[in-house]
Write a protein that binds this DNA or RNA. Structure first.
Length: 296
DNA sequence: ATACCATGAACAG
DNA sequence: TGTTCCTGGTATC
């Protein structure tokens, strides 16, 4: 049996430890990234591949032309904003990666690059490590103006220091769109996805269909503080865990399983009050809320 | 072999 | 508003 050739702390799908009835096969839960994932990737990869010449290729082929332009160059900085990742190359160009629903990085801590697993769009090889990227929505090398344009259309990123939430408040306060819709809009706030949307609204006791303009200032401040806390905690944990240890019902020292890690998201009953969780389609995604904890 | 599903987002009209 | 693109684990035939 060969040992895993990737670092366990990299962003990888993993077997979940879902609590399930005896005899029921454990389900595999795919890990889809939100902002905390991208921030962690930027930090982890910075330690591995920044500051030295690296080989860049595209085993799958679709990134081949762009890879050629930076092959042998040095990444000077890796930056995350919301769900977007930027590689600042010594050539002056900027690599742009967006994982979308399916994108995944694999980190192989081996001297020699292993056989590519699946369709590896971008491969970056440093002396002792290979970083592979599969399935991204976006993976390009561009003129710096592209990064500027992307940043200009994104809202504040609560994971970053010194971000100004005022733009988020203003957009929400004058919008008749629902708050559940607005939180998924990356130009309102960058990095929130379907899980954090559900969980932040739950904690702030706001119904997802409430129009943005009907949220008062105190609620918007609470939302920003909640989102900031949740996403930053997600970077530390390397997973989404939004519930308190007490409410999870899991004893200290034991890992909280995915099924108990959220109050409302993808649950049948509210973790806090036990009511049946309601599902709605908002912004083309399934929204989850508790009708008792988050009344209309 | 095929269908379905997932924590995303761009684009056409 | 609807359509399309990306991947891969799981379920179903």
């Amino acid at each position: 049996m060969s040992s895993p050739d990737f670092a366990p702390w990299s962003h990888l799908s993993s077997r979940s430890d879902l609590k399930c009835a005896p005899g029921v096969t454990k389900r595999y839960l795919p890990v889809v990234p939100e902002g905390h994932t991208i921030a962690k990737i930027a930090r982890d990869h910075s330690k591995l591949i920044v500051g030295m010449p690296v080989a860049v290729s595209s085993p799958q082929g679709r990134f081949a032309a762009d890879a050629e332009r930076v092959d042998g160059a040095t990444i000077e900085r890796i930056e995350a904003h919301g769900k977007h990742l930027f590689h600042c190359w010594s050539t002056g160009e900027i690599g742009h990666v967006h994982l979308g629903l399916f994108g995944k990085y694999r980190v192989h801590k081996t001297d020699d690059p292993p056989e590519p697993q699946g369709a590896v769009r971008m491969r970056i090889v440093a002396p002792d490590v290979t970083v592979d990227l599969n399935g991204p929505t976006a993976c390009t090398v561009d003129d710096p103006s592209v990064r500027k344009r992307i940043l200009a259309r994104l809202g504040p990123d609560p994971i970053k220091p010194r971000q100004n939430p005022q733009r988020m408040y203003d957009k929400i306060a004058k919008s008749s769109r629902s708050i559940g819709d607005l939180l998924m809009d990356q130009s309102v706030v960058a990095g929130v996805g379907n899980v954090y949307r559900a969980e932040a609204l739950f904690v702030c006791e706001i119904h997802p269909l409430r129009p943005g303009k009907e949220c008062d200032a105190a609620e918007l401040e609470a939302l920003w503080a909640t989102i900031t806390g949740m996403l930053r905690q997600g970077v530390k944990d390397g997973r989404i865990l939004t519930v308190s240890r007490e409410e999870s019902g899991v004893p200290r020292g034991k890992r909280i399983p995915r099924s108990e890690a959220t109050y409302a998201y993808k649950r049948n009953s509210c973790l806090r009050c036990g009511s049946e969780i309601q599902r709605l389609d908002i912004a083309n995604r399934t929204s989850y809320h508790c009708p008792i904890c988050q009344p209309r």
